[in-house]
Amino acid sequence: MDLEAMTVDAEGTLYVDRDDAERGSEGPFYTVYATDDASERWGYLCSACETVDNAMDTMGRIVCNQCPNVRKPDEWDAAHE
């Protein structure tokens, strides 16, 4: 696994796996790890704006807080709307 180091002011150094992605509406969300050996998953990097400022809900929806990139939920239930 080839991880790319990136420095985030509030978090320090994080490691991005650009081979592991989730489809987003504006571009993929790449998996981010807190450790260089990928033993501690941290979150996601939005490829549309290159930020880690995003959130995931309990249904698996990922929403970037800086741009309109969104990943649809894994499961959808009309009762949640």
Rank of each mutant, 00 (worst) to 15 (best):
residue 65 N to D: 08
residue 40 E to V: 13
residue 27 G to W: 06
residue 75 E to I: 05
residue 33 Y to I: 01
residue 69 N to K: 00
residue 64 C to E: 05
residue 33 Y to A: 05
residue 32 V to I: 04
residue 24 G to C: 00
residue 41 R to G: 05
residue 45 L to H: 07
residue 38 A to D: 05
residue 27 G to F: 09
residue 40 E to I: 12
residue 32 V to Y: 08
residue 45 L to Q: 15
residue 14 L to H: 13
residue 78 A to P: 04
residue 40 E to K: 14
residue 34 A to R: 15
residue 57 D to S: 09
residue 78 A to K: 12
residue 30 Y to N: 13
residue 62 I to Y: 01
residue 41 R to H: 13
residue 36 D to Y: 11
residue 55 A to P: 00
residue 13 T to I: 10
residue 31 T to P: 00
residue 27 G to A: 05
residue 65 N to K: 13
residue 14 L to G: 08
residue 43 G to C: 02
residue 67 C to Y: 12
residue 4 E to Y: 14
residue 70 V to Q: 14
residue 12 G to S: 06
residue 77 D to K: 11
residue 63 V to W: 09
residue 70 V to E: 14
residue 22 E to R: 03
residue 64 C to Y: 12
residue 22 E to S: 08
residue 23 R to K: 15
residue 10 A to V: 08
residue 29 F to V: 02
residue 6 M to H: 06
residue 7 T to D: 02
residue 45 L to K: 12
residue 64 C to P: 07
residue 31 T to I: 04
residue 60 G to E: 01
residue 44 Y to P: 04
residue 62 I to W: 14
residue 71 R to P: 03
residue 38 A to H: 00
residue 32 V to K: 08
residue 65 N to Q: 11
residue 51 T to Q: 01
residue 67 C to E: 11
residue 14 L to E: 08
residue 34 A to S: 13
residue 81 E to Y: 14
